[in-house]
Structure formats: C-alpha cells, structure tokens
Simulated assay, not measured.
Amino acid sequence: MSHELASSFETEVIQRSHEVPVLVDFWADWCGPCLMFGPILERSVAASAGRWELVKVNTERHPDLAAHHGIRSLPTIRLFVNGASVAESLGALSEAGLKQWLDRHLPSPHTTTLEAAEAGLRTGDFSQAGQAAEAVLAAEPQNDRALYLKACSALALDPASVAAIVTAIPGGSPFFEKAGPLKELAKVLVAPPSEDGKGSIPCANAIAAIRGLDWDAACSALLELLERDRHYGYDLAAKALKQIFLLLGPRDAITARHQPRFASLLFS
C-alpha cells in the first residue's frame, strides 16, 4: 500500500506503524533522484504483500514536517515501527540496495520462530535452537538475528563451524560486534589446553560452561583459573574473560558482577 500523506503524520505514520511498519519517503517534485527512486519504492511496496506500507511526504507541501524531522537531503527514507523511527537512509537506492536495506531493518515475520530459538538457548536445548534458526535462514538467508542464534547453538554443538556462520553477519548489524567474541570463544573449544597443573580443573570447568553457554559459571571458573595460574593455556583465562565481556556487553549483569574482580586479579 502506498499513498501521499493526506493530512496527519501522527495518524497515517506514527499510529499506523503500531499495526504495520511504515516507510516514509521525503521527496520533492524538483528532485531528480527522488523521481528516479519513486518507482523503485512503488514496485517494492507492491511486491511486499503487505509487509510494510509507503507514505510519501512532499517536502514542498509539508515544509513543517521536513523541518521537524530534520530532513536536509532528498530523497530521505525513514522507517517507523511501533511509533518510533528505527532506520533512515539518505539518497536514492537501487532496487537491490533498497531490498537489502529493508531486509536489515524490517521486523522479521519469523519472530515466533526466533523467540523459540532464543528459548532453546536459555533452556539448553541447543539442537532445537539451531533448528529454529535454520528454519528462519531458509526463508531469510541474511537474517542477522537468526545467524547469531545459529552461531550460539553451534558454539555448543559444533564450535568448528562458528567462524563460517558469523562471517555472514553484516557489518551494520547490531549482532556484528558479537561475532568476533563468539569466533574467539569457539577457538577455545576447538583446541582446549591439554597441559596439567593447578589450572587444569578450573579450565575444564570453564570450557564446559562455555560450551553450555553458562556465562556466569564460565566467568567464575575463569576467574578461579586466573587466580590459580594466570598464564595457564597461554593466558586463556584473561583472553576468554575479555571475549565473554565483549559478547555480553558492559551493561549486562554478569559483566557487572565479574569484571571488577577480573580487573583486580589482572592488575594485582
């Protein structure tokens, strides 16, 4: 569905986006790239089978809206979902470029399946999680959330395959920053240290916890390893802890709980 803004941006875009994603095309009659981009948008929304809607805003007729939304370049497209702007692109895109942009930013129609994959990871049913992620990827090969969930299940079941999976996560994805840590943690599982010594037991516990995606237990075991023998396995404890903290992010409760002790042990 596509139409020119009739009267109310609040009604036609903000409120409507709670029911279906709305893409707003800010354009003008005098803008050559806008006139070339318009038919691409029209064909794309017609082919979307109602997955999203297009509202066109002529900035000459609605200069107040252009000013309110800070539009300084034409064409500008902005995607609204659940009442909020979630993505923006400046300038005309090719048909393929628009499809890639929409695939990256539109909510997935496979949300229920993705949530099932996440539930599988939480409960330790890694096979079910991987199968759910695969089902989404069969329909959407570039779905970054599904790729990330597949990589997480692979960390538990087949760590040697993690590197190939995370390579497909696009650079602009919110999951891209998690790809590197997953890849590095997979290396630990593929080739764990085999040396004896006082660090062997906490190392084995840490590896088992990483394979089970039990990050709290993994951090505890790695901190014990760091305390007993910081150089065990070529400084495995410090390296793995850094990757876990990167994977979880600085605001995660597990990071907040274990990072202070890590810093204390590392610099003591």
Rank of each mutant, 00 (worst) to 15 (best):
P63G: 05
H258R: 09
R43I: 00
L213D: 01
T255L: 04
P159G: 08
L90W: 11
L266N: 04
V24N: 10
P181F: 00
L246T: 06
R228C: 09
A139F: 10
A139R: 09
V55E: 02
A237H: 03
S85T: 14
L5M: 04
F262N: 04
R145L: 12
A133W: 05
E12K: 03
P159M: 00
L185I: 04
L98E: 01
A47T: 06
L137Q: 14
G124R: 05
L225Q: 01
R251F: 13
I207L: 12
G32R: 15
T111S: 15
A146S: 00
E88N: 09
I14M: 09
S268E: 12
S268Q: 07
V20W: 07
I201R: 12
P193Q: 03
P109R: 04
G180D: 08
L90Q: 15
K178I: 10
R211W: 03
A163W: 09
T123G: 08
C219G: 05
P107M: 08
A6H: 11
E115C: 13
E12W: 06
V166D: 01
A208V: 06
G197N: 06
A92Q: 06
A84F: 13
S200K: 13
T11S: 09
A46W: 02
E4P: 12
P193K: 06
I40W: 01
Q259D: 08
G197A: 14
C31Q: 01
T76V: 07
C152M: 10
G171R: 09
V22W: 02
D216Y: 13
H3P: 03
T255H: 01
E42S: 12
E224T: 04
G249Q: 15
R257L: 05
Y234K: 09
A28S: 02
N82A: 12
S85K: 07
E195G: 11
K198F: 13
L121H: 00
W101E: 11
E224P: 07
G70P: 03
N58M: 07
E118M: 15
A191P: 01
A139T: 07
R122V: 01
S268D: 10
V45A: 07
E177N: 15
D103Y: 00
W52A: 02
C203D: 07
F37M: 03
H105S: 03
V55Q: 10
I165Q: 00
L149W: 00
A209F: 10
M1L: 13
Q131K: 14
E4C: 08
I201A: 15
P260K: 08
A256I: 08
H105Q: 14
S220N: 14
Q259M: 08
S161H: 10
G180V: 12
T59V: 14
A186L: 00
F245C: 08
Q142M: 14
R251Y: 05
P193A: 14
R228F: 10
V136G: 05
S161Q: 11
A179Q: 01
R43D: 03
L157H: 04
T123A: 11
D158V: 00
P202K: 03
I254L: 12
W52Y: 12
R72E: 11
I254A: 03
A49K: 12
Y234T: 14
R61V: 09
Q128F: 12
D144K: 09
D196A: 10
F267S: 15
G124D: 02
G197Y: 10
F80A: 10
L226F: 06
A87R: 03
R122K: 14
D64P: 11
L65Q: 07
D216Q: 11
